[in-house]
Write a protein that binds this DNA or RNA. Structure first.
Lengths: 356, 356
DNA sequence: GGATGCATGGAAAACGTTTTCCGCAGTGAA
DNA sequence: TTCACTGCGGAAAACGTTTTCCATGCATCC
């Protein structure tokens, strides 16, 4: 079923049908109504690819994430999708699973589909692929790790703010041996978090040498904590590079019969929805997925609407500690672990968030 | 940059370029090489929409899920995407969030983009929307809830198998008061699970009247368990309609100071990756997300390749109980809850799955 | 009443491919 | 040398839109 078919039945030209459908104001209301009736009767849906072909705009955005199975990302995808629908865009999603081959094919496919822009929320990406996209003048938005050139928006995340709060929170609870479990070392964003940890620790005169490396997954958290726990002087508090790691830590602590928070304080990073539902509920640094997605989408939209407006905006996302119940006063040196009940911060009952 | 540009530079016609690119065997190898060199030099990527326009095939599949933020779905999306990439397909993803408006716009958008098929993994969908898609002869695959007509593939899930195993497992552990927390009542798949529970219970002479209703989210699990726990005779075991509900239950049990598994056995459904990492690790009924996605994709591919092969295949997915550590012997009537340690099944250490 | 202006709608080109149809060059046989 | 064939490659149509340009019809003004 064509636009021609519609034109024939409405006894007008295809031009008129097109104008009517796109609500061009100069078309006579009577005629428009006639066209619309036929459209509805036949259940006609314009062919987007034909439209894209002539318009030179596909109304598709690419969205590249590291790993959709990490609960951090679905929230982003959801918000991004909501915004896309609102603005009549479609999304091409890729979850790279950290595989460079995957990234490459994904970029290629996006170029072939002529996306209008790409949001790369992958916390680390090969430079060479960026080139491909840049050559084609595809608007891009990065988080953390983007070159500083016009046409490419960058979202800088203020890791230090939240991580400093976390460190100081733990220090205030008399923890001195605070460990950090990092993410995969080659990811820029993981490095940034680790650096923020170091800064925050040295700022207050603590040494930041207790660092284990994880993989931003639960498995890595478990493994890393096992190592940490085997130390001569195991840490009394662990700050994790993301929430999944923290969940792994708590899981392994359970396995090793280390009580959280009484014998071990755990802090996560990201504040995924799930963090509120762990046992105990996880104290973590919030980096709003909703905000992030929103900023990314807006940035893309900007780029598309007013391309190459030379001042390329910078965007920043703040992070903040949110207190729950996975941290407590450090057991005082003299084997006071058994008094833990007394040491513990009074449990704050966090009301369940309303079902969204 | 066109195919024409390539043709000009390679001093051939566009037809030849097209043939070379699509590896039509009749083209002279010499010439093909010449064409490819130019293509690589210029970094030419064919325009997929133009191609789709003439081919009448978009090589896009739609994927509709209920809620991407439910950890059950990202696994599906990931496998589906993997398969898509392998087969040179693209995916248009929609997370309907159970919103009929959303579903409708999603279907509309997919038709407009001329998808080659749609997998509807949404556990319940409005009939009227199906019509739209069917009228256009778009291949469809449903899970659970699809009309029984050619051109529409259906994946039936054998809920009873796994749920029966779960019920009998609990019964064997001497639980008599076994409750069920269902999903949203209007979802067919939720009803199917509940019915399976009833069947399995009555089969072994237990009454299936302890049923609370949740929402397939953690919040709902918490609320439902609160209700159950307030009963005169609260259940000693809870079977949940999905894992998120079970996580909510365990979380609320923690809040109410009910020990899992000693004082309460909890069983989930789905076996999401996370289930292995809850505290305690969750015993649950496995319904392989990987398998589900695979079946769905294959079904779509079949439909596309040999359309209307009149025998429309039926697909089935099995479910099976996987034992972890959230279930234990029921506390014997005489307040034996304190002997729980003895009652408990010896903990099975489940080795962490290798990072995938 | 005729010329001018404006609103409206139609014909056709354009977007970037694939593919059908056909012509041409080269080969082998007569 | 000419003819028939084969195999390769080019011209052009087609896919379904949008949009430019132009023609028509009508009202207004002189």
């Amino acid at each position: 079923m064509d636009i021609r078919e519609i034109a024939r039945r409405a006894k007008v030209s295809t031009a008129t049908v097109s104008r009517a459908i796109n609500r061009v104001p100069t078309v006579d209301p009577q005629l428009a109504k006639r066209v619309w009736r036929v459209v509805d009767e036949l259940g006609y849906y314009p062919n987007t690819q034909a439209r894209a072909l002539v318009l030179g705009r596909s109304r598709i955005f690419g969205l590249i994430v590291s790993e959709i199975t990490n609960p951090f990302f679905p929230e982003i995808v959801q918000t991004f999708e909501n915004l896309a629908v609102e603005n009549n865009y479609e999304i091409l999603l890729t979850s790279t699973v950290h595989d460079p081959k995957r990234m490459e094919s994904s970029v290629r496919r996006m170029i072939e589909r002529r996306v209008d822009g790409v949001a790369i929320l992958t916390f680390g990406m090969e430079e060479s692929l960026i080139e491909h996209l840049r050559d084609r003048k595809v608007p891009l938005v990065f988080v953390d790790v983007g070159p500083d050139v016009p046409g490419i928006a960058n979202i800088r995340i203020n890791y230090l703010n939240g991580i400093r709060q976390a460190v100081q929170h733990l220090a205030a609870l008399r923890h001195a041996r605070i460990a950090f479990i990092s993410g995969p070392q080659h990811l820029k964003s993981a490095a940034a978090r680790r650096d923020a940890f170091k800064t925050a620790m040295t700022e207050i005169g603590l040494s930041a040498d207790l660092i284990a490396v994880g993989d931003h997954k639960m498995e890595g958290g478990m493994k890393a904590f096992r190592e940490l726990h085997a130390l001569d002087q195991p840490p009394t508090a662990v700050l994790c590079s993301n929430d999944m790691t923290a969940i792994g830590v708590m899981r392994e602590a359970y396995e090793l019969n280390v009580k959280v928070p009484d014998e071990l304080s755990v802090v996560g990073f990201d504040d995924i929805h799930l963090a509120e539902f762990t046992i105990p509920p996880l104290t973590t640094v919030q980096m709003s997925q909703h905000e992030l997605a929103k900023i990314a989408f807006k940035a893309l939209l900007n780029e598309v609407d007013e391309p190459r407006s030379d001042e390329h905006h910078k965007y920043e996302l703040m992070t903040n500690l949110v207190l729950r119940r996975s941290t407590a006063l450090a057991a005082s040196g003299n084997g006071a672990a058994t008094q833990s009940k007394a040491n513990r911060i009074p449990p704050r009952r966090i009301p369940g968030t309303p079902a969204r």
